[in-house]
C-alpha cells in the first residue's frame, strides 16, 4: 500500500505539469489582453503598452511559461497582475471557503442520498421508492441558481429564519486561524459565532447538495438492488437476521464501492468551485476567485487557481482509491 501511494503521488508530477501546459496555452489563445482589461477602456494605447512591458507580457510565450514554471517549482504561485498580491496567500481563504461549503454539502448529500437510495432499494416499487426517485429526478434537474433564490426568498425574506448571504454576518468578523470558519470559531471557543457560521452554511450547502444527493441516491439504489438479490443476503434472511441489520451491515458494505466512486467524483467537482452557488450566496470561494480572474485575464491567478483545483481533484480521488481497500479487504494495491 505504501509503495502504491508513493507511485500515485509521483504520477501527480506529469499530470500537473501537463495541466500547466494546457491551461497556459488555452488562456493565451483566447482573445483579450490583461493590460487592456486592468486599465479599462479609459486607458491610452501607450499606457497599455507600458503596462504590458512591465508585466513581462511582451516577452515570447515560452519565456513567460518558464518564468511561471520556475515560480511554481519554488513554491511561489506567482503574483496577481490585477492587485499585485501574492497568490499563495490570497488563494487560501478562498479555497478554505469552498472546502467548508463542499464539506457541508457533501455531508448532506451523503447522509440523505445514501439513505434514500437504500430505502428505495429495500422497499423496491413501493410508494416510498417512487417518491424518493421522483424527488431525486427533480433534484438532479433543478437549476441551482433558481433553487438558491427560492431558498433565500422563503427562509430569509419571508420567514426571516436564516441569513441570505455570506459566510458570516456582515457586521461581525471571525478571527482567521485556519480560515475554515467552523474550525476557527471552535478553536477560539466562540460557540455563538460557530452557530452563526452554521446558520450561514445551511442554505448554500443545501443548494449545492441537491445534484450530488440525487446522483448518490440513484447510484445507491441500483447498486443496492444488485447486492440485495445475491445469495448471501438470502441466506442471512433465511437465518432470521433483522432486515435493517442485513441492509446496513452486510449489503451496504458490498454495494458501497460504486457509491464511493460517485462521492469522490462529486466532491472533486465541488472543490473545483461551486461558481453558481458562490455567486448567489455571495460566498467568496475559489470558483468566484478564478472566474473573476478569467474576466480580468489575470493569467497567473487563472493558472495557479486551476492548478490548485486540479491538485485537489486528484487528491480526492486518491483518497477514494485508498478507501476502497478499507471497505473491501479483497482489493489489493500494487
Amino acid at each position: 500500500m505504501l509503495s502504491y501511494s508513493i507511485k500515485r503521488l509521483l504520477m501527480l508530477v506529469p499530470v500537473l505539469l501537463g495541466m500547466t501546459i494546457i491551461v497556459f496555452s488555452i488562456i493565451h489563445a483566447i482573445p483579450g489582453n490583461p493590460a487592456q482589461t486592468i486599465l479599462g477602456t479609459k486607458a491610452t494605447p501607450e499606457a497599455i503598452h507600458h503596462l504590458n512591458a512591465s508585466l513581462g507580457l511582451d516577452k515570447p510565450l515560452y519565456v513567460q511559461y518558464f518564468t511561471y514554471l520556475k515560480d511554481v517549482l519554488t513554491g511561489n504561485l506567482g503574483t496577481s497582475i490585477q492587485d499585485n498580491n501574492a497568490i499563495a496567500s490570497e488563494i487560501w481563504p478562498h479555497l478554505a471557503a469552498t472546502i467548508e461549503l463542499s464539506f457541508a454539502a457533501m455531508l448532506i448529500a451523503v447522509i440523505i442520498g445514501v439513505n434514500a437510495g437504500i430505502i428505495s432499494a429495500w422497499k423496491k416499487n413501493s410508494v416510498v421508492d417512487y417518491i424518493a426517485m421522483i424527488v431525486a429526478l427533480i433534484g438532479v434537474s433543478m437549476p441551482i441558481f433558481w433553487l438558491g433564490l427560492l431558498e433565500q426568498w422563503i427562509f430569509s425574506v419571508k420567514l426571516n429564519w436564516l441569513p441570505s448571504i455570506g459566510q458570516t454576518d456582515i457586521t461581525s468578523t471571525v478571527a482567521p486561524i485556519t480560515n475554515l470558519y467552523l474550525v476557527d470559531t471552535l478553536l477560539e471557543g466562540q460557540f455563538g459565532q460557530f452557530w452563526m457560521v452554521v446558520r450561514h452554511l445551511i442554505m448554500p450547502a443545501v443548494a449545492l447538495a441537491t445534484i450530488p444527493m440525487a446522483i448518490i441516491a440513484r447510484m445507491t439504489r441500483s447498486s443496492m438492488l444488485e447486492v440485495l438479490g445475491s445469495d448471501y443476503i438470502r441466506t442471512a434472511k433465511a437465518k432470521g437476521q433483522r432486515m435493517g441489520w442485513i441492509v446496513y451491515k452486510y449489503a451496504l458494505k458490498n454495494a458501497f464501492i460504486p457509491i464511493l466512486t460517485v462521492i469522490g467524483l462529486q466532491t472533486g467537482l465541488m472543490l473545483g468551485g461551486a461558481i453558481l452557488t458562490e455567486t448567489i450566496f455571495g460566498w467568496p470561494g475559489i470558483g468566484l476567485y478564478v472566474y473573476n480572474a478569467i474576466q480580468a485575464r489575470d493569467y497567473p491567478v487563472i493558472q495557479s487557481g486551476i492548478l490548485i483545483i486540479a491538485f485537489m481533484f486528484i487528491m480526492v480521488n486518491f483518497i477514494v482509491d485508498l478507501l476502497y481497500g478499507l471497505i473491501d479487504p479483497r482489493i489489493k494495491y500494487r
Partner: peptide, 21 residues
Amino acid sequence: KLIFKVIPDNSSRLNALKNGE
C-alpha cells in the same frame, strides 16, 4: 462604520436588502 459587501447576483443582493442584511 461603512462596509462594502460583494454579492455578485442582482436578485440575491435584493433578497439580502429585503432581509435587512
